[in-house]
């Protein structure tokens, strides 16, 4: 069974925000909601790194753990989805998520928080596949059409990889091998410390974190 994953190659990402635009356009995401965005570390400093972030469809998802109405579920492909009919818009998932993936439309008066919205890995929701109701609530179901997420497919530099985790890992491993140095995945230095092969260089003086 395939397990769907995203991986952003920080060496290739040029901060074009094409993935963000593709996502908003494909799913007709309302104003104020960004299912995906590009984060730049040390912006403006030579050697800055960018990474495209959305729901990472965690294997042990904190949002699922904290949801008081249990509206989250995981598909057979490892995609974390939610049921908007059950969501009460409490925002617990937003506080729990380390990536800030859950989004809440704030179109209502008095700061009213609507139903949570997040990246679906282009796999819709619990409604019937490719139905009008599913599109209206969750966006297009590209996986059911035999396609992959629009953000990954249209990435011009193929920095953002999405699909079967095993295939994605092989593609990335091959890239690292061709570069002839260590892994440049964003966060490597944070996770494994400096001084190791492929560790992120120390930020320049005055660099923003």
């Amino acid at each position: 069974m395939a397990r769907m994953k995203f991986l952003c190659d920080a060496e290739r990402c040029i901060e074009c925000n094409g993935c963000v635009t593709a996502c908003k356009s494909e799913h007709e995401v309302p104003w104020g909601v960004n299912r995906r965005r590009v984060v730049t570390i040390n912006d403006g400093v030579p050697g800055e790194k960018s990474i495209s972030v959305a729901c990472m469809h965690c294997s042990d998802a904190p949002c699922m753990a904290v949801c008081p109405v249990d509206c989250f579920y995981r598909t057979d492909d490892g995609v974390v989805l939610h049921d908007k009919d059950l969501c009460i818009g409490c925002g617990y998932c937003f506080y729990a998520c380390p990536f800030g993936a859950p989004q809440f439309p704030q179109a209502g008066a008095f700061g009213l928080r609507g139903k949570m919205d997040k990246c679906t890995f282009c796999n819709g929701g619990p409604e019937e596949d490719r139905s009008a109701v599913e599109f209206q609530k969750y966006g297009r179901n590209r996986l059911a059409e035999g396609k992959l997420p629009a953000c990954a497919e249209m990435c011009s530099t193929k920095a953002l990889l999405g699909g079967d985790g095993d295939v994605i890992a092989d593609i990335y491993r091959e890239r690292v091998f061709k570069r002839g140095k260590g892994s440049e995945v964003w966060g490597w230095g944070t996770a494994y410390g400096p001084g190791k092969p492929g560790a992120a260089p120390a930020p320049a003086a005055g660099a923003k974190s």
């Binding site: 395939a2 598909t75 057979d76 492909d77 995609v79 049921d83 179901n141 035999g146 396609k147 295939v167």
Partner: peptide, 16 residues
Amino acid sequence: RSGKGYQVSEHINNYY
């Protein structure tokens, strides 16, 4: 909640 999920197609292989 059970829908049609990931299935390898020519389109996906082309993306890879």
